[in-house]
Amino acid sequence: MIRQKGELLDFDAAVERIRSGRPLALAGDRSVLADLPEGNWVAGTSPYFMTREQGECRRDRIFVQELAGEIAGIQSYTRDTLPGFLEDAPENGYTVIILPSGTAIHHDYAEQSPRYPEMYLKPVVGWVAGVHLDDLGREQSQVLDGRECQTFSDRAVAIHLALPQGQTAMVHAVNLFGPDDGPVLRFDDTGFEVDHCLVAGERMRFSEFLKNHDVDCRRPLVADYCGAAINVSIQAVDEDTGKVRLYAPVFRNVEYRLAKPVDDYAERFSSEMPGGTGEILFGCNCILNYQHCGLEGRATEGLAGPITFGEIAYQLLNQTAVVLTLEAD
């Protein structure tokens, strides 16, 4: 099994890691992140974690992922500057970015990041920060820039790292969902909210399609990106408007299908983890996998990390685990 350094620590142990000066990506409840000292770290709120032993919710712990390489920059980005964030990344290295959920900057990234300069040419992973599910609608997710312990709900934070020649960061998306044999779905526009769709070429309301086919909305939509299955998760059907809200945007001109159900997520997970010998520098998994696939109290072998409200492997993903490995050329 590939070696992984990320671990869930108490406050004092996390502070000790920060004081080591090494670059870190942190996750935790806002109450525990708020008191951290300045340092070379970025963070986002989430009290859900996958440890090596099990999935768990802790408001008093911080998940610490120690990153490899030389720090090339720690930066916060506004909606205006975010499109250029990869221009700040080194030629050989990688970036970890964190966005606050349900915000304009989150939506911008979701819809526009495939067209950002340098996208797919430089490795980028990350996640969307969230809140305890009991606090949904009452609290706002946050991201933090550790250099001056600044907290943001309207900005993204990123840490850029440079790697020496001979080392490469590789981004992997671990997605257990695959398309079913149902009809192809297409959408008129790119967006988080959908009214109509084309079902095998026939136009109809998406909510009607879901109802007529008795679709379990825990199954995401899946698109084939040259062999990579990319999910879009269904959030809810608005009973008043009949529109369907999504956790990530569907894109115009992309073909989607509903996903086949996954029988035993935790059991199947390890077989889908990337092979090879590279050390895992970063990992995260989706809150919907945690909820729908019963990960609380169970382990996903080989992967520990924060449970997140959107995953980033270059672009925004849903119901997917993301892994960054360090490989020798």
Partner: peptide, 19 residues
């Protein structure tokens, strides 16, 4: 034409370019 690759980045890059 498909290009068989294990690299997620290349798959996404080609998909975007083809779109």
């Amino acid at each position: 034409r498909m290009l068989e690759t294990r690299l997620l980045s290349l798959r996404l890059l080609l998909t975007r370019a083809r779109q």
